[in-house]
Simulated scan of single mutants.
Amino acid sequence: MKGQITASLGFFAKLALSQSVIYSGSGYGTYYYDIQHPQSCGQDLSVANTGNVECSQFIALNLNQINSNNLVAMNHSLIASNLAQYCGRQVVVSVNGQPSSTPFFIGDGCERCGTGSSTGPWNPNGAPGLDFSFSALSALNSNACNNGHIDISWQVLDTTLYNFDTNAPGQPEGPVSGGGNPGNGGGSTCTWAGHCQGASCSSDNDCSDSLVCNSGVCSADSGSSGSTPPATCSWEGHCQGASCSSDDDCSDSLVCNSGKCSP
């Protein structure tokens, strides 16, 4: 965990220059719902999907109605103290020092996330962190199903991705116009969601269309033909080669063979 925090400092320092950070920390990521794949990791999450989120106080939207696997729950006590400050805000999540390009946003409260120690040992009754959809957590770390939790660090920014009645009274509840689409596949204007200009990358193959990887960020390069997105399945993070514990962890017609999703 300590190494993860140290490795994240450089990225977060640069991020803070352009966007204000209103809450940050390190701890554990867990899951409690999944809109796209309610039958995940040997569990039925469909009932959890019908739960109302804490950030929608008056209209009382539930997770199914919000229809995004990128909604994240944070420390219940903290969010309840100032819903207008935290609800709908963008969250940058890092695993092993690598920031995810997924446009996560705060939408709910998590009782477990407000107590315990960030340095362990893991305690399911109280451990600081964030609560995700299973698909999102599994995309961050393929061990999410086997372990039930993963090590993360995070920063909540003052950028609003989603309007709730608590942070934007009088405005229609939904994704902020022009602020990116915090949907199931990540907001973008390119053909490969989550791999558009500004997304994190390690090579050109991580970037969509004609974009190239420049200093760890997908960028435009008129002198390059870019790369074509690799073949994908309908459930990101659960395609061929992904880690699994059962067939339910694999997308489409793939099956779990020796711990890997296979044809």
Rank of each mutant, 00 (worst) to 15 (best):
M1I: 11
Q4L: 10
Q4G: 15
L9Q: 14
G10I: 03
F11G: 08
L17C: 08
S20C: 08
V21F: 06
Y23F: 13
S24K: 15
Y28S: 08
G29I: 01
Y33R: 01
D34A: 06
Q36D: 12
Q39R: 11
C41H: 03
L45I: 07
S46Y: 00
A48H: 13
A48Y: 09
A48V: 03
T50D: 15
V53Y: 03
E54R: 14
C55Y: 11
N69T: 05
H76M: 14
A80F: 02
N82R: 10
Q85T: 15
V92A: 02
G97T: 05
G97E: 03
Q98E: 14
S100K: 09
F104H: 14
F104S: 14
D108Q: 05
D108N: 02
C110T: 11
C113V: 05
G120T: 00
P124S: 15
P124T: 15
N125M: 09
P128K: 14
N143I: 05
H149D: 02
D151C: 00
I152Y: 07
Q155S: 13
E173T: 04
P175Y: 04
S177N: 12
N181R: 09
P182K: 02
P182T: 00
N184F: 03
G186P: 14
G194W: 00
C207M: 11
G216S: 10
V217H: 06
C218K: 07
D221C: 00
C233N: 10
C233E: 12
S234F: 06
G237A: 11
L254T: 05
C261L: 12
